[in-house]
Amino acid sequence: MAEQAASLRFIDATERGLTRLRAVHPLAPWLVAFLLLAPLPWVLLNTYHVFLANFICVMILLSVGLNIVKGFCGQVTVGHVGLYAIGAYTAAVMSVNFGMTFWMSLPIAVMVTLLAGAVVGIPSFRLEGAYLALVTLGLGESVRIFISATEYLGATNGFSGIPAPRIGDFRFDTYQKYYYLVMPVMLLGVFFSFRILRSRLGRGFMAVREDPVAAAAAGVNVRGHKMIAFLISAGYAGFAGALYAHMIPGYLNPRNFTVIEMVTLLLMVVLGGLGHIWGGVIGAIIVTIVYDITKDYYHYSLLLFGSVIVLTVLFMPKGIGGIIDRFIATRRFIAIREGRATRPGSDDAA
């Protein structure tokens, strides 16, 4: 009883805190988040952890993007890794073969990936479910095979020598410095995903996911929403790809974009909560950390991943985000029931 009350107090306190921050300025919670995350490289024990933090930020971008199109808009896409590859290789080619700086290669990579995202989105007008899954899988694999057989893109030797981003003489050539590049982008990405998903557009996505026919009848432009969802997710993938390409050691290889990586990404989104607004973030963090902790047990890693996916789909379809939501809702429910008996005058805000 006592710890139920304590956890409810914690939840309420967080809610109140956020409300007060938002009262100051709508963006205040995000600024606070930025300030909390900014000193992370100094807090972490060693450079390897900073490397992991950078990698987590890139994965968060990918997962959040995938969650938008898959979790919120309900389009079954399993070729997302192909978009990631396109973003990464475009940035690589632009900066190495065309001599552009990171500040040019990044937007171009994002634009090219958006274009590719449109190509992936078109089949979604006609196909659903497993059919769409097959098409996107085929597209994703085709991208990888094309890269691995094309000399210009480095083929199987990989594409190396991607330079670190620079501003004047300052180069983002250590993991600590790079953190201050990826972390703000990640934060912006999460911020925009929240804005999108809590807006009318987001509700349109969810309508398309639940019942496209009913949505169309209600006036939602189903095709338009699907395309926008794909484009947004492609944009995220483009950013993630470009950031990954320019990260030390500036090397890309088609073997980094196989179906196994796709399954890992899927695990992140599913475990975090497919269709939950925090799903991508939670999943990316947990999967990367667990993967690192279990590195010594590489004999069993795929078994672990596969089993977690299967068990999550069966028993936790809303993922960890869903569990947290249920936890909060249960606590509040209990509090209401008790509040009537023991706390006169409390606001029934829960």
Partner: peptide, 21 residues
């Protein structure tokens, strides 16, 4: 001993872990 499965991102992560952690 760590496995990198012939994948460069895993190998880079392993090397970074060994070097810094």
């Amino acid at each position: 001993l760590l496995n990198d499965e012939c994948k460069s991102d895993i190998g880079v992560a392993n090397a970074t872990k060994y070097a810094y952690q």
